[in-house]
């Protein structure tokens, strides 16, 4: 019985960690290419979520249409935000970029608030997403299995993309030295748009699972997950892609572990402990688990 419980929690940890890894990867890929801390990352999920809500409102119920539509809109939202808000501050200091993203995030949340109201709106993703698989005597929600599998697939796909395609090569190079990449004749614009498209796609995937768990959209739904993704990114080493994955899963395991182990009186403090991880990282390993120590004199 105990091992069943442990197995369930292990799957829980993997799926939560997968969600954080997807989000942290999206943050890291944009950060590595243009040193932008994308506060608005979670709000693209919100945009995708509302798009799905609207589509369902118009009578489209087939999840194989609704879910890809949500992902598509999330990607488009990411590209649009890049064009409108981040392109003008390209090359500015990291502080400027971060505050711009912060502003964009507030705008999206409040536009959703004006047009959608503050109450959550129910979004039925798919029945099979909400069901459970039984393996022997263990019940595991389909969402968790899928989330783990999709995360792993996305990571493998991303690795392949970064390794074997020209765009991937350009992005890896841009993470090291943007001016040189441009001197090689690569358009900076294309690299950055690709980074945003990938980050939007990953956010869209994570968004589906977030939505499947919550069953509703609200204006602030993207904010809390992305705060956690920040923690994951710092844990793993900010801007490092492998670090984002490791940080995401480490955070998922830590979070579920705390939930299981903390006595009920202080279970409410779980998030405080989770965010305290950042403090621990800063003290013992400022560059994160996989991050490289920045050259002395580098600003960010």
């Amino acid at each position: 019985m105990m091992s069943d419980y442990a197995l369930q929690q292990a799957f829980n940890a993997l799926s939560v960690g997968g969600e954080y890894a997807l989000l942290a990867l999206g943050l890291a890929i944009v950060f590595s290419v243009m040193h932008l801390v994308n506060f608005a990352h979670g709000d693209m999920i919100t945009v995708g979520g509302y798009a799905m809500f609207l589509l369902i409102l118009f009578g489209v119920r087939d999840p194989f249409l609704v879910l890809p539509f949500g992902v598509l809109i999330t990607v488009l939202a990411a590209l649009l935000i890049e064009r409108v808000a981040f392109k003008p501050v390209r090359g500015a200091s990291p502080t400027t970029g971060m505050l711009t993203a912060f502003g964009v995030s507030i705008i999206i949340q409040n536009v959703a608030l004006i047009f959608g109201g503050s109450r959550p709106k129910a979004v039925q993703t798919a029945d099979w997403l909400a069901s459970s698989l039984s393996i022997g005597s263990v019940q595991i929600p389909v969402v968790q299995v899928l989330e783990t599998v999709v995360t792993l697939a996305a990571i493998i796909g991303l690795v392949a993309l970064m390794r074997y395609t020209t765009v991937g090569l350009a992005m890896r190079a841009a993470a090291k030295d943007v001016p040189v990449v441009r001197l090689m004749g690569v358009k900076a614009d294309r690299v950055i748009l690709s980074a945003f498209a990938i980050s939007g796609f990953l956010a869209g995937l994570a968004g589906i699972f977030i939505l499947a768990r919550r069953g509703a959209v609200d204006p602030f739904m993207g904010f809390a997950p992305v705060l956690k993704a920040f923690v994951a990114a710092v844990l793993g080493g900010f801007g490092s892609l492998p670090g984002a994955v490791v940080g995401g899963f480490a955070l998922g395991i830590a979070e579920v572990g705390l939930q299981v182990l903390l006595p009920p009186e202080i279970a409410g403090f779980r998030d405080a402990f989770v965010f305290l991880l950042i403090g621990i990282v800063l003290v013992f390993r400022p560059q994160g688990i996989l991050g490289e120590r920045p050259d002395f004199g580098e600003k960010s």
Partner: peptide, 17 residues
């Protein structure tokens, strides 16, 4: 409701640009 938030976000973005 949300107008104040849009205002804050918009002036931050505009100012940064």
């Amino acid at each position: 409701f949300g107008l104040t938030g849009i205002f804050l976000g918009a002036i931050i973005v505009l100012c940064m640009i």
